[in-house]
Amino acid sequence: MPERRTILPLRTGLLFLAPAAIFVVAFIVLPFFWVAVVSFTNRSLTGPGALHPHFVGLTNYLQLFAPRTFLQPGQFGSSLLITGQFVLFSALIGQAVLGLVLAWLFYRRESWVKQTVQTLAIVAWIIPDVVVAFAWSAFLDYGQGTLNHILTGLGLPRVDWLLGVPMLSIILFNTWRGTAFSMLLFSSALGSIPPSHLETADVTGANAWQKLRDIILPLIRTHIVTDLILITLWTFNTFTPFLITGGGPAFRTEVVSILTYRIAFKYFNFGSGSAIGMIMMLINLAFALVYLSLLRRREATR
């Protein structure tokens, strides 16, 4: 990066940053350290652990990873696998791919069709959680739900969405819910591509897929990485599936955020709940680093 003239001197910059920094320190950094410290204690809200919490070393972590129970339903390992599937299929494949498809479909087209489809996607993204939960409970209901209504109308058998294929249900749900963000991000990324890049391709007669693969995707690579980082983080931590399945049946949709809730807020076991929070942060960090290093490597080979 060439040396550029400083527009804001450091001190003024820090001054501008200060109000946000105060909030971040108070409401993010402090709680973070609380979680970090408590993860090494047996602190709880009720029971003896509330009266006399003490340090227990790595016990909470070791219990989470206890090989005997690790992969049993309702345990941390099983929940991690579920979360992994959930992130992979609903965020990385569902939201990102569908978002890209929608952005690409309406690329360089301004019309009421685009406005309508994008607005519908955004509505799915902005309506409140509890409302969405009502809507989807009715949508997926076995006996009366809209989706089964459509299926039987098409002569297909009904599907027991919430009990038979609960993972698929929350994956469909989260894709529906969150695609708008990726769509918006990719739309504006596409919008920032100089038209001349594509005109050359038009002249050489490249088809749409070739244009997407050879020109567009490389150009918006950084946006893709940013999108993947953000939606991965968000999906890892989203609690909304709880409103639809409650984590069930039999823990089959208990993603880590729901497990944390159960341990920290139903059992009031803060030590263990905090340990999960810490591990999740490390996993998120690992993901972010992998994405960023992929980006760097691609840049280096160009």
Partner: peptide
């Protein structure tokens, strides 16, 4: 004082069985 926690485990145990898993 452990009852509430054990009770959750009882619920879990029955769920593991009635779900067939």
């Amino acid at each position: 004082d452990a009852y509430a926690k054990v009770s959750e485990q009882i619920q879990l145990m029955t769920e593991n069985v009635v779900s067939g898993q």
